[in-house]
Design a protein around this nucleic acid. Structure first.
Length: 481
DNA sequence: TGAAATGTTGGGGCG
DNA sequence: ACGCCCCAACATTTC
């Protein structure tokens, strides 16, 4: 007599490339049926924002790491390409699966895909279930006293901490009964996620270990070495004192539940400051959920009247790290080389594009989307709007960073600038953030020719500041009238 | 998660 | 000894 083998469960992996604290995977394993772990790359759906090049590089390596983790426990990752509903239908056809599990997505362009899928599957009499993991809170459930959504960070975070279910992480399955069968038959390289000609990923490879084990190691190291003095050192880009967990979080290799659980154990002085940075990520998703076009539209509509400058040459100089302001250029080159930029420098570089160059923040947001390994549908537009002043709880319009003062304050020894701008590395500290003031003999002695080996400032900050204040003032007048 | 302009105070040089 | 000025240092206001 043959024992009846239950129909398999499909687990969809998306930006939750981990086996630890994975509610969908744990539930599938608990169900006792064979598990089909499936990743679908959807390059077709025009309603979805195409992933940037740096993110695709990360995705490739993260998928490889996930496959490796699954193989250690008895399963493997199947890859497919196409629309989610099509592929899931085909996978059900090939496997007779009767059950599909996944972890929820909160990007408003992706969530409807999952909602339709759930409805379709249930209509066919199949089981479809979704789980939490990406966020500490459900954006649809958190409301202000007046019934709206939060627009100010502090009350949001206070309410969230009170109401969220800060559950403990779910253990990774010890072993998985992996479904044995063929489906789609794509190999990782078939997804074409890596850059080819040219291969610009050298700096990324040197900087990162994608995958959940890399993320866990990063968290442990951060807590052990940097958390105690986090509040003081986090703003000093030369120190590498931030967590650098952002790409791991963006791809769901680690969850905020895991991070908070580790912080609870550490009791370090910097824990509450770091926890509130996790809170900003929650706030960004909260804003995105209630404002689906956060990357395309000003949160404050009065900014629609803003007269941004159209200056392709200036945008290009900013992208390449050739503005002539060392702290800005160092940040932009760190981004280009490593796929990441220190958070404080992001603010300075963004302030420079928006307020010194008067370029529409959406140009900056797009560049970051393409070049950041941590490019995130919520954090990226929310943060750009924050700097522009067009966002919720945003920086006031008159807050304009002086790139020289910021450089001297946060990188007094110039170690960050020298790391990324070798052509001026020989300048003494005194001139490292203002090379145009260095004596001619000093420049010449170090083979620096401003305008040739390193640019002269593309705008005068003082004049640019005055211009920005006038333009921003006009928006304020607009609103008043 | 700012910077610049303006205002105030107090020490020291000097006639 | 005194008043005057300068200016650094700090505080406050303004954008």
């Amino acid at each position: 007599m043959s024992r009846h083998k239950p129909a398999p469960t499909i687990v969809l992996f998306r930006r939750d490339l981990r086996i630890d604290d994975n509610g969908a995977l744990a539930a599938a394993v608990d169900r006792g049926a064979p598990v089909i772990a499936l990743y679908i790359l959807d390059d077709e759906d025009r309603n979805l924002r195409a992933m940037g090049a740096a993110s695709r590089w990360w995705l490739h390596h993260s998928l490889a790491a996930l496959d490796h983790r699954l193989r250690q426990t008895g399963a493997n990752l199947l890859l497919a390409r196409g629309r989610t509903d099509d592929i899931v239908g085909k996978a059900i056809g090939a496997s007779s699966a009767d059950c599909v599990f996944w972890n929820r997505r909160y990007d408003p362009s992706e969530a409807p895909v999952d909602a339709r899928l759930k409805a379709d599957l249930r209509e066919k009499g199949l089981t479809a279930r979704s789980f939490d993991g990406a966020l500490l809170h459900e954006p649809s459930l958190l409301k202000t006293g007046a019934g709206g959504f939060y627009r100010v960070y502090t009350p949001f975070w206070k309410a969230m901490v009170d109401k969220a279910d800060l559950r403990d992480p779910i253990d990774a399955p010890g072993s998985i009964d992996g479904w044995v069968g063929e489906f789609a038959g794509l190999r990782l390289n078939d997804l074409n996620l890596l850059p080819t000609k040219p291969d610009w990923a050298q700096g990324l490879r040197e900087s990162w270990t994608p995958g959940e084990e890399g993320g866990k190691a990063r968290l442990d190291e951060f807590i052990e070495h940097d958390l105690e003095d986090y509040e003081r050192r986090r703003d000093i880009p030369g120190e590498r004192a931030t967590s650098r967990l952002s790409p791991h979080l963006a791809f769901g290799e680690i969850t905020p539940f895991q991070i908070l659980a580790s912080l609870r154990k550490s009791r370090s002085a910097g824990a509450s400051k770091f926890r509130s940075e996790i809170g900003w990520r929650e706030f960004s998703y909260h804003l995105l959920f209630h404002n689906p076009d956060l990357a395309g539209r000003n949160f404050r509509p009065e900014f629609d009247a803003m007269s941004w400058r159209d200056d392709a040459g200036a945008v290009r100089a900013w992208q390449r790290g050739l503005t002539g302001y060392p702290i800005v250029d160092a940040g932009m080159r760190e981004l280009w080389r490593t796929g990441w930029m220190h958070n404080r420098v992001r603010m300075i570089a963004a302030s420079f594009l928006i307020k010194d160059l008067m370029i529409d923040w959406r140009h900056g947001e797009k560049w970051f989307w393409d070049t950041l390994v941590d490019a995130d549908a919520a954090n990226n537009p929310a943060s750009w709007q924050w700097v522009a002043g067009s966002g919720a709880d945003a920086a006031p319009y008159f807050r304009i960073f002086n790139p020289v003062l910021q450089g001297e304050k946060l990188d007094p020894q110039g170690s960050y600038v020298r790391r990324h701008i070798p052509e001026i590395a020989a300048l003494p500290d005194r001139y490292i953030h203002r090379p145009w003031e260095a004596p001619a003999s000093l420049l010449k002695g170090n083979n620096i020719e401003l305008g040739k080996t390193y640019p002269k400032p593309i705008v005068d900050h003082g004049a640019a500041r005055d211009r920005a204040l006038i333009v921003y003032q006009s928006i304020k007048d607009e609103k008043a009238s």
